[in-house]
């Protein structure tokens, strides 16, 4: 019965989707869409793509949109990430008190040494990705995820070594505060939140783009420590 009702609902949803999108064709820009939306005021994507380079001097337009044009969205997103991590820690907290000693046998020497050797290299790759976020594909979110996967490797390979230290909490709160501080300095200097107030330099150099690299590094630390904390909280022992 339940399966039948579900299939019926799915059929209705599929029919609705088909009716909505049967006229839309993939990748049509030339005639149908651009005819109506040539003005920059309407077509935001076109405006960001055509003016982003000279306004922000950052080669990666996606980074420019994420950090500068739509920076407020990113601030809200980081807040959602923080609240989810805090909620997860609070929900799983009661289990932590009755933590039993580890039942898993330790990894072999080769795995242990290999993980310890690879960990700084992974951190270096993550840092490279988020420092160069305004020039090449990549940025704070991807670099943070790579850093978190480095912590994951430590959890899997070197049992008993974790990041249960105050350093993660400090990095987490300091990076969030750095994001807010840069945004508020923009408000104080130029009158608008997240204003790109620093000298922008010349495009395609490492020191270019004004505040975009600063905020992306802050986001990288934030995402890396949050996701690392999530992995830390979830990777308890099974009963």
């Amino acid at each position: 019965m339940r399966r039948l009702i579900s299939l019926l609902l799915l059929l209705i949803v599929a029919l609705g989707i088909f009716l909505c999108f049967s006229g839309a064709s993939f990748g049509a820009e030339g005639a149908s869409r651009a005819g109506k939306l040539t003005e920059d005021k309407v077509n935001f994507g076109r405006r960001y793509a055509s003016r982003g380079l000279e306004e922000n001097k950052a080669g990666n337009i996606v980074a420019s949109v994420v950090v500068n044009y739509r920076g407020f969205d990113t601030l809200g997103e980081v807040t959602v990430l923080f609240i989810a991590a805090v909620g997860l820690a609070a929900i799983l907290h009661a289990r932590r008190e009755e933590a039993t000693p580890s039942k898993a046998e330790p990894a072999s020497l080769i795995v242990f040494t290999g993980c310890r050797f690879l960990f700084p290299l992974i951190l270096l790759l993550g840092a490279y990705i988020f420092i160069h976020g305004h020039l090449t594909p990549g940025g704070g979110f991807q670099g943070g995820a790579v850093v978190a996967s480095g912590f994951l490797l430590i959890y899997l390979g070197c049992r008993g070594r974790g990041l249960r230290s105050a350093g993660v909490a400090v990095a987490e709160s300091l990076s969030g505060l750095a994001f807010l501080a840069v945004a508020l300095v923009g408000l104080a200097v130029g009158g608008s939140f997240l204003l790109n107030f620093l000298p922008k330099g010349s495009a395609f150099a490492l020191f270019s783009g004004g505040v975009i690299p600063l905020i992306y590094v802050a986001i990288g630390f934030k995402v890396g420590s949050e996701l690392g904390g999530i992995i830390d909280n979830l990777s308890g022992e099974a009963r």
Binding site: G52, V66, T74, V80, A84, L88, G144, L227, I230, L234
Partner: peptide
């Protein structure tokens, strides 16, 4: 570039909500 920026943040939010 705008949908790409939105999806970029949506993926990260997705994994956090998934963990919750």
């Amino acid at each position: 570039p705008v949908p790409q920026a939105l999806v970029l943040t949506a993926i990260v939010i997705g994994v956090a909500v998934l963990a919750l």
